[in-house]
Design a protein around this nucleic acid. Structure first.
Lengths: 241, 241
DNA sequence: CGGATTAAGTTGTAGGATGATATGTATCAC
DNA sequence: GTGATACATATCATCCTACAACTTAATCCG
């Protein structure tokens, strides 16, 4: 009867695992908004862990706006609109369908980011964008460092928009994608693809230098579509869902 | 010497308050990436709370990818790119500058959402969008319920894109904005503004019915700009940052 | 000097106790 | 009979103690 979290997977701390389990229950509809969670003691018994562990897990879910705990009553599931944070389930990204959709979101954000950056960038922005470009096209282009530089390039563009929210969102989305395709990129960097990738970045940079929002947007869009293609992801067209 | 969190504010649980304090230290640069946090015992002494409270706070920060804890060594601040969640500081939204930027991000997301929805929606989507529209233009238009319906209208459009990430992000951004301007809307709903607002929604809906992405995008953009204006927020133009 | 062992420091988990809050039920007063 | 009050119960919130597990540094021994 004591599962001791044997079926939950990962090697993380117990609170993290309990939180992940409960989170899945909520996201999957097993626990609907308004539903009351088992008491802390019951969860403690169920998972074969101390109540402290359960409380740490519940603290995490509370911080995310997934549940609310009321003293003397219990903990209740909140509606999705009450969320206090956005998270992306990396497990879900193993499904190509989901990866396509995340790339689509990334394309929306980055195309506009590039346009805004072209309109708003200063010389200091161009300098840092160029530095990242140089780094990703230099000696590191065959190593993991080039991925860092690649993402830095994108973050610097987002920073040039002068909108920290855009920067935060783009950074987050890029990192989630990066963690999901990390292995594939490292395994076999193809010579031609790397050069094409760099070429696309150069075109984005040139549009930024020219201060041409439309050109920057188009170049970035083409790049994201191309980048997705290179990892086997086809962006859905407007007509496809 | 025991602050007992007297200067931290809010009436929330102690772990939440400790987490908020540490989070601010990290975001403000007081604690840089790579920096080691005080030990759990030190934090416990500093804030005058039990170690359990500190651990719950740390569990929250770990879940957010803000810190990593290593057994036997301590807890360390991670780089912003390692974040596992996006959060928006509601306190920061009291600054009009930040609100402008968040509205700008919202405009980016929603304009594209409307375009995609126009291209991809089915009859069931139109039905639920219409239902939300009816609700916000009916008897509830002068009450808080109209805000719920308003946001539901936007979420249903995002749902029609068939991209759950778009839906999640839009829902989140809308709710953060909503919580920050909640009081202002309730205090004094102006007759003309409500009618204008509904009119804008009707135009968006009509573009969706017509399956016209460009018209939907334009109508949504105009609406978001207008909605921001109605709460005293001017969206930055492309040239402004 | 190098390897093994021990000690110290820190996080991770368990278990117990008490305080605080919310709700339901029983009792009392009018 | 109805409303107010008191009490009991359930549950979360916090505190405390103890030990396990891990990491690093110090010490010991060949």
């Amino acid at each position: 009867m004591k599962q001791r979290l044997a079926a939950i997977g990962t090697v993380e701390t117990l609170p993290h695992r309990v939180a992940a389990f409960l989170s899945r229950e909520i996201e999957s509809g097993e626990l609907n908004p308004g539903a009351r969670l088992p008491t802390e003691q019951e969860l403690s018994d169920k998972f074969g862990v101390s109540r402290n562990v359960v409380r740490e897990a519940i603290a995490q879910l509370r911080a995310d706006g997934m549940i609310e705990a009321r003293q003397g009553i219990g903990a209740f599931v909140l509606a999705p609109e009450q969320r206090a944070a956005i998270r992306i389930d990396r497990e879900a990204l193993k499904d190509t369908h989901n990866m396509e959709r995340l790339f689509e979101l990334r394309c929306i954000l980055e195309a506009e980011s590039a346009a805004l950056a072209a309109a708003r960038r200063g010389q200091e922005h161009l300098d840092s964008i160029k530095a990242a470009l140089d780094r990703m096209s230099g000696e590191e282009r065959w190593e993991e460092g080039s991925i860092d530089a690649d993402l830095l390039f994108h973050r610097e563009i987002a920073r040039a928009t002068g909108n920290s929210y855009i920067h935060t969102f783009i950074s987050f989305v890029c990192e989630q994608i990066r963690h999901s395709i990390h292995y594939a990129r490292l395994t076999n960097p193809l010579h031609d693809l790397v050069e094409v990738n760099v070429g696309e970045h150069v075109r984005i940079y040139e549009a930024l230098v020219a201060g041409d929002p439309a050109a920057a947007e188009a170049a970035m869009r083409a790049h994201i579509v191309g980048a997705a293609d290179r990892v086997g992801v086809k962006l859905p067209l407007r007509g496809a869902k």
